[in-house]
Design a binder for these strands. Structure first.
Length: 424
DNA sequence: TCTGGGGTCCTAGGACCC
DNA sequence: TCTGGGGTCCTAGGACCC
């Protein structure tokens, strides 16, 4: 019995989610946009073949989109998160050691005997996920996470399941894999390696360890070792708490008035505090930042930021909003055109094992805890924002633009898919 | 007109301790 | 003339991931 690692990756995930509920989109080009309908963040294969690039601003590829009748969608995270849960549950049902790595990827660790058995198992899993959710996935299998990533790239191009099984095939594959396509090597490191004549994954795997360590960091040494089949990056099956929580978003238009900035920042604080309570944490530090449009060539780009420390950690939305408003007043400069606001929560600790001090008013803290518990419970049962803080804004004119959003087919009764039997 | 959001980890350097 | 050795913690900034 050998230990293997598989990477299951949903194909063009957001675009595939849209397709599940709209079969007319089959074989048609689709793109999904970022918040504010700004950039392309997902493409179907047909859209990729038209030369539309990942991360490209929409206005730059308008003409290709128009002439090829590409279907455009604003991002619908409610739908994508629900579809992701469905896929992940099927995987977790079958494999004990599953790490949900991102919204559309999961690593699993398993023991296997024969190559044929293993391939059969994953061909079936792939079929099952497609049948039960409508989402196509690719599965790469090998001995380490980094090699499973490599195998997955090939699976995407070929039959959907790919197993790097023999030493010889691995060598050939790594020689054909450009250095910049290795997991963990970004743009900067790619340039450095190319300048040194390290052009592909195979060359990296053959480099001297001390030399790698000298020119890069410990992570890249791990990557190189993983290419040689040595496990260095563990499967993490427990969802660990985040060490920092961020909520930041660009506005649909520039804001100059403090009043609207207060609304936006209060809303972002509410969201961040919800995330904080969801992972059962409290924070000591809140940071608020404002930024002007970094693409505006007429004006200097400004990034204004300040923090507040609490004597006693908190996850109360009211306390956090009140601190955030003070920071905001302090950093705000009139006459600037603000495009984006940020809220960071840091200095996190477990709320259930919190240490109190003599100066803590424990009765008040318990009261706050209960209030927040009720607040979250109501919003969970009746939908997000059923109750909200009034200073997070009523009309929210600055709120992000999402003009091409599809329905939340799976989570909202009013938006459920309707089938017209007459036409069938 | 128009350019995402949310994370993690590592390193270097400073402050400080004995 | 001459100025140790070893450690921790914190922070800012850089690089990476999806």
């Amino acid at each position: 019995m050998n230990n293997y690692i598989a990477l299951i990756d949903c194909n063009n995930f957001y675009a595939s989610c849209e397709r599940v509920f709209n079969p007319k989109l089959k074989n048609k080009p689709i793109v999904v946009l970022s918040n504010n309908d700004g950039c392309i963040i997902a493409r179907s294969n047909e859209a990729k073949n038209l030369g539309i690039k990942m991360g490209e601003p929409l206005f730059k590829c308008k003409s290709i989109i128009k002439s090829n009748k590409v279907n455009i969608f604003s991002s619908n995270y409610t739908l994508y998160a629900d579809m992701s849960n469905r896929v992940m549950n099927i995987i977790k049902d079958q494999f004990l050691n599953t790490e949900i790595y991102s919204i559309d990827e999961a690593f699993i660790s398993f023991n296997g005997k024969s190559i044929n058995d293993i391939e059969d198992k994953f061909v079936n899993l792939r079929r099952k996920i497609y049948k039960w959710t409508g989402i196509p996935v690719s599965i790469g299998i090998s001995s380490t996470k980094t090699l499973a990533k490599v195998a997955n790239k090939i699976a995407k191009k070929e039959s959907g399941v790919f197993f790097i099984s023999s030493h010889d095939s691995k060598e050939k594959i790594l020689k054909e894999l450009p250095i910049g396509s290795v997991w963990g090597i970004g743009r900067k490191l790619e340039q450095r390696f190319l300048a040194m004549g390290i052009l592909n994954a195979y060359q990296l795997s053959k480099m001297d360890n001390k030399n790698i360590r000298k020119i890069t960091n410990i992570n890249i040494l791990r990557t190189a070792m993983e290419l040689n089949g040595v496990n260095c990056i563990d499967i993490d099956t427990s969802p660990i708490s985040k060490k920092q929580i961020t909520t930041s978003r660009a506005f649909s238009k520039n804001i100059t008035e403090l009043k609207y900035l207060e609304e936006a920042v209060s809303l972002y604080v509410s969201r961040a505090a919800e995330k904080l309570r969801f992972q059962k944490s409290k924070c000591y530090i809140i940071t608020v930042a404002l930024s002007t449009n970094r693409f505006d060539r007429q004006n200097i780009h400004k990034f204004l930021l300040n923090s507040h420390s609490f004597n006693s950690s908190t996850n109360s939305t009211s306390k956090l909003i009140s601190a955030a408003k003070k920071i905001l007043k302090n950093i705000y400069q009139s006459g600037l055109f603000y495009k984006k606001a940020y809220v960071f929560l840091s200095g996190l600790e477990n709320s259930e094992s919190k240490q109190y001090t003599f100066s803590d008013d424990i009765m008040m803290i318990k009261k706050d805890d209960n209030l927040m518990k009720t607040f979250d419970k109501i919003n969970k049962s009746f939908g997000s924002d059923t109750i909200k803080y009034a200073n997070t804004g009523i009309s929210r004119d600055w709120f992000m633009k999402r003009e091409k959003k599809s329905n939340r087919y799976t989570t909202n009764w009013n938006e459920i898919l309707k089938i017209n039997l007459k036409n069938n």
